[in-house]
């Protein structure tokens, strides 16, 4: 398709090095960012915003490592342009913890050994967070399906399932105690 180079000759370089300037909403805060227009969201997050919690494993959509949430949906930040990310709520692993501490998933992943090397972990956490938004008590079958886009080479996924199930349980318990508790 579209042969734009002589056979054997190197492809043409990026022609534009001028940066574009825009506001991205990341982890609940608006950030003014300047970046080259051909940069992916992954590159903008890591290189222009110092949010290195988002990892990369292939940059081609073949591993799920760079997953972030965009308006709550898991997406591959390696295949979204920075330019395509305005007006969207972006959540990275850095945004999961609040002032009261980590998200329940962050605790259970650590407690149950669901993070071994920890490199695929941010992607799994964000995918799992989206799963729990939709389904407070996901079955194993649901987890197998919904996590099938995140590769992990360390755990064999089993401890990841267990960690999500435990977090779901804690969130359900907290949810029901919040509802049942009297608010003074």
């Amino acid at each position: 398709m579209n042969p734009t180079t002589e056979a054997g000759g190197p492809p043409p370089p990026p022609t534009s090095l001028a940066k574009t300037h825009m506001v991205l909403r990341v982890n609940g805060e608006d950030h003014e960012v300047a970046f080259r227009p051909h940069k992916t969201l992954l590159e903008v997050l890591r290189e222009d915003m110092d949010l290195t919690g988002t990892k990369h494993g292939c940059e081609l959509g073949e591993c799920g490592t760079c997953t972030v949430l965009m308006d709550g949906e898991p997406k591959l930040s390696c295949l979204v342009l920075g330019l395509e990310s305005d007006g969207v709520d972006i959540e990275t692993v850095e945004g999961m913890a609040g002032p009261e501490g980590g998200h329940p998933l962050q605790h259970t992943f650590a407690e149950l050994g669901a993070a071994q090397c920890g490199y695929c972990t941010p992607g799994f956490l964000l995918t799992a967070k989206a799963v729990l938004e939709d389904d407070k008590d996901p079955s194993r079958e649901t987890l197998v399906e919904e996590l099938s886009g995140n590769l992990c080479r360390c755990t064999g996924y089993l401890k990841i399932y267990e960690a999500i199930e435990l977090a779901a349980q804690r969130m359900r318990e907290k949810g029901s105690s919040d509802e049942g508790g009297s608010h003074v």
Binding site: P12, P13, P14, H38, E43, L60, C78, L81
Partner: peptide, 12 residues
Amino acid sequence: MMRLPSFRYLAP
């Protein structure tokens, strides 16, 4: 990382 070449971006 694998990088994109540059381009002009339009969103009609």
